[in-house]
């Protein structure tokens, strides 16, 4: 069943897009990642021009993140205060990122830098998560009590000034690392064209020691705003948001997100982390293949001169 996309100026199969949106939405609801790092490469793979894939991906991420966040609000697993502080940092970082983006473009080889950033970040984050969570699972299988947060055992982050209490996350921590984390992720987001959930989730878990169940909702909350910001910036400057394409992806995405949130609820924290680690690592390996394996065709056409 074909449908014509008015901005991308091409005809695509609506069922393929619904399935794509559904699968990404499912993972999004389950892991609290927006899914931008999945949907954008998938759209490019489906011959959608990269500029449109990035902007439209951001638009669809809003819908599935909002839908997922509503489910978390109901369960009380969304820390609004923590999310807002992260967001403040995020807006600053995104703005800086847009400047860095145009600077990198003027140097040429922007595509290569984006690919390398993806591989390095996804590979590192995915690998670390997988190792940690598999160890945690083996510990709990071995009959040892799950490693609880030890009172008084804090890392350097917890020794910083300007402490703030985040009730829903059972956290008492300085705002400096929270703002810094938000800014760093905002910076990467605007360069890579993603919401940054795949970095946010592990960073909240491992650096700030936020409980895994609260991390998912809070991350989704923050992603809604980052993705909305990205969408509006792209629509204004590049006119690359294809609203028809985004809407089809959204329909699949919101349905998938609800099922995903349900499945995620049944899994243990370490299982969830292991699966997300595996997924992130898989995307990194896939992108690394593109960099290192001979491409099926060495020639490519780009409109314009």
């Amino acid at each position: 069943m074909g449908i014509y996309l008015p901005i991308a100026e091409m005809s695509v199969n609506i069922l393929v897009l619904l399935a794509m949106g559904g699968a990404v939405g499912f993972l999004s609801g389950m892991f609290g990642v927006g899914g931008g790092f999945l949907i954008t490469p998938l759209l490019i793979f489906y011959n959608i021009p990269p500029a449109i894939a990035v902007a439209t991906g951001a638009n669809q991420v809003i819908a599935s993140s909002f839908s997922g966040a509503l489910a978390h609000i109901k369960r009380g697993t969304l820390d609004f205060k923590l999310g807002t502080v992260l967001l403040l940092g995020g807006v600053a970082g995104s703005t800086l990122g847009i400047l860095v983006f145009s600077w990198l473009r003027s140097l040429g080889q922007l595509d290569l830098i984006i690919s390398l950033t993806y591989v390095v970040f996804l590979g590192t984050v995915g690998g670390l998560m997988l190792v940690e969570s598999v160890n945690a699972i083996r510990r709990s299988r071995g009959g040892a009590p799950p490693a609880l947060k030890k009172a008084g055992h804090h890392n350097w982050i917890h020794r910083m000034p300007l402490k703030m209490r985040f009730r829903a996350s059972k956290l008492f921590v300085s705002v400096i690392p929270v703002l810094g984390l938000g800014a760093g992720i905002g910076l990467l987001s605007s360069i890579m064209g993603v919401g940054g959930g795949f970095i946010m989730v592990p960073a909240l878990i491992y650096l700030l020691k936020v409980p895994t169940n609260v991390v998912v909702g809070t991350s989704l909350f923050q992603i809604i705003f980052v993705a909305a910001y990205t969408t509006i910036v792209h629509a204004t400057t590049n006119q690359t948001v294809d609203i028809v394409l985004a809407f089809i992806l959204m329909i699949g995405g919101v349905a998938g997100a609800q099922y995903g949130a349900k499945v995620g609820q049944r899994l243990k924290g370490e299982q969830l982390r292991a699966l997300l680690g595996l997924l992130v690592l898989a995307v990194a390996v896939r992108l690394a293949f593109d960099l290192f394996l001979p491409p099926p065709n060495v020639y490519s056409l780009v409109p314009g001169l």
Binding site: N59, A71, A235, A246, V254
Partner: peptide, 27 residues
Amino acid sequence: HGFFFGICAVVLAIVTGWLGRIIFKRD
């Protein structure tokens, strides 16, 4: 009207997300 279009795209996404939550609610 790129800016207005962007706002519309965001509103559409929010409404779709909200409706999706109501229709496909699983908890």
